[in-house]
Design a protein around this nucleic acid. Structure first.
Lengths: 123, 123
DNA sequence: GTTTATAGGTACTTTAAAGTATCTATATTA
DNA sequence: TAATATAGATACTTTAAAGTACCTATAAAC
């Protein structure tokens, strides 16, 4: 494997957990293994395609494990790998900062979680 | 200000420090205030436009301060605000994980940092 | 025999992110 | 007088990320 050159180590981290969805997926997985349909419910804004795409990439990077049950209808579960668990502190602090930030900006403990307005734009 | 709805707090964090450059800029600023030209040197892959654009956004979000010296040629410095410093732990752990990941994947302590190959593609 | 649930594939399109090129200002230096 | 350094603006283009629509399989339930 050729060496990738980074100008600063954080670039390597972002290559693995960067993007719109990966941190969100991983945060959910820190609360235990989840099957595909659960993840979809937890992330109402994600599409089927993006979900599987991101899961595949995380799997390739060794961050999560994919557990396939041989049954119909299909059942697949995802869980953090041991390597994925090494991201726990990062994920927790990202979540914690987000909570505080929401409080600071919007005044409330937490901006209302409604199943509407899932398109990522301010209402 | 209307309330933005997040499905999980980490989304709020990503809104502030997500994207290709912001974490990199902020990591550099954790080592002290930097003027524009310094940041450009530290991030050989970034363009003038992206640099100022990201700096503006970070400033708007209250993460950094822009200090303008009234002289010619112009001198402008950027530093983390107090609020920005609240991201210190996140930034440090992102960097630390990146270092370990590079070691794991590429075997070396650190993939060679060369000023070439800055286009973000594997060589 | 049609519908349901589950997990996913794939081609195509749209949108957002990022990059390129060219422009500004002005005191100082050569 | 022309070049230099610095920080930035702006219009435009390219590329990458994300989204849409439609397709597969199969056992069980209705």
């Amino acid at each position: 494997m050729q060496k990738k050159k980074y100008n600063i180590p954080v670039e390597a981290t972002l290559e693995v957990i960067g993007g719109k969805w990966k941190c969100v997926i991983l945060c959910h997985l820190t609360h235990g293994k989840k099957r595909t349909s659960e993840l979809k419910r937890l992330m109402p804004g994600i599409t089927q395609k993006m979900l599987t795409q991101q899961l595949r990439e995380l799997e390739e990077d060794g961050i999560i494990h994919r557990i396939v049950y041989n049954q119909v209808p299909p059942k697949v579960e995802y869980e953090l790998s041991e390597y994925g668990w090494s991201l726990k502190d990062i994920l927790d602090s990202l979540c914690a900062w987000g909570e505080k930030h929401i409080t600071k900006v919007y005044g409330d403990k937490f901006a209302v979680l409604e199943e509407s307005v899932l398109n990522g734009k301010r209402t």
